[in-house]
Computed example of a mutant assay.
Amino acid sequence: MSILRTAATAATVARTVLRSPAVRAGLALAPALLANPAVRGKARDLTLGAAYGAGVVARRIVKGR
């Protein structure tokens, strides 16, 4: 899959996810939830873990070529 096609697919998925009512509700509540330092730390840890996992998957895909 070309890099352009991958980018277009990612943009389409992001647009679709943002239309979800659950995602919109979560984004609306984010400022109130992130005011708590414990929740902010947990969100940071989860984000870093997800980014690491995405990097692992990307390395496996690129290495397979």
Results as ranks from 00 to 15, higher is better:
residue 13 V to N: 04
residue 65 R to A: 04
residue 64 G to Y: 00
residue 37 P to S: 07
residue 32 A to C: 04
residue 48 L to C: 04
residue 28 A to S: 07
residue 43 A to W: 01
residue 46 L to T: 04
residue 23 V to W: 01
residue 63 K to G: 15
residue 25 A to C: 09
residue 47 T to R: 14
residue 42 K to L: 13
residue 38 A to F: 06
residue 11 A to P: 15
residue 15 R to P: 10
residue 53 G to E: 09
residue 29 L to Q: 15
residue 56 V to K: 08
residue 26 G to M: 05
residue 45 D to A: 12
residue 64 G to K: 12
residue 34 L to Y: 09
residue 14 A to L: 13
residue 25 A to Y: 06
residue 1 M to F: 04
residue 9 T to P: 03
residue 3 I to A: 10
residue 46 L to K: 02
residue 25 A to G: 13
residue 46 L to N: 02
residue 63 K to Q: 12
residue 40 R to T: 12
residue 28 A to H: 14
residue 41 G to Y: 04
residue 19 R to E: 12
residue 20 S to F: 10
residue 44 R to G: 05
residue 32 A to M: 11
residue 31 P to L: 12
residue 50 A to N: 10
residue 55 G to C: 00
residue 2 S to F: 01
residue 5 R to E: 11
residue 22 A to Y: 11
residue 33 L to M: 04
residue 16 T to W: 05
residue 60 R to A: 09
residue 41 G to I: 11
residue 45 D to M: 01
residue 34 L to I: 06
residue 36 N to E: 10
residue 20 S to Q: 10
residue 52 Y to Q: 14
residue 58 A to W: 04
residue 29 L to H: 15
residue 54 A to V: 02
residue 39 V to H: 13
residue 53 G to C: 03
residue 19 R to N: 12
residue 18 L to M: 08
residue 4 L to G: 02
residue 53 G to V: 02
residue 13 V to K: 04
residue 61 I to R: 12
residue 57 V to S: 08
residue 23 V to H: 00
residue 35 A to T: 08
residue 13 V to M: 01
residue 26 G to S: 03
residue 24 R to K: 14
residue 7 A to K: 12
residue 1 M to A: 08
residue 47 T to N: 14
residue 55 G to F: 00
residue 39 V to W: 07
residue 58 A to H: 04
residue 37 P to M: 09
residue 5 R to C: 00
residue 62 V to M: 02
residue 8 A to V: 10
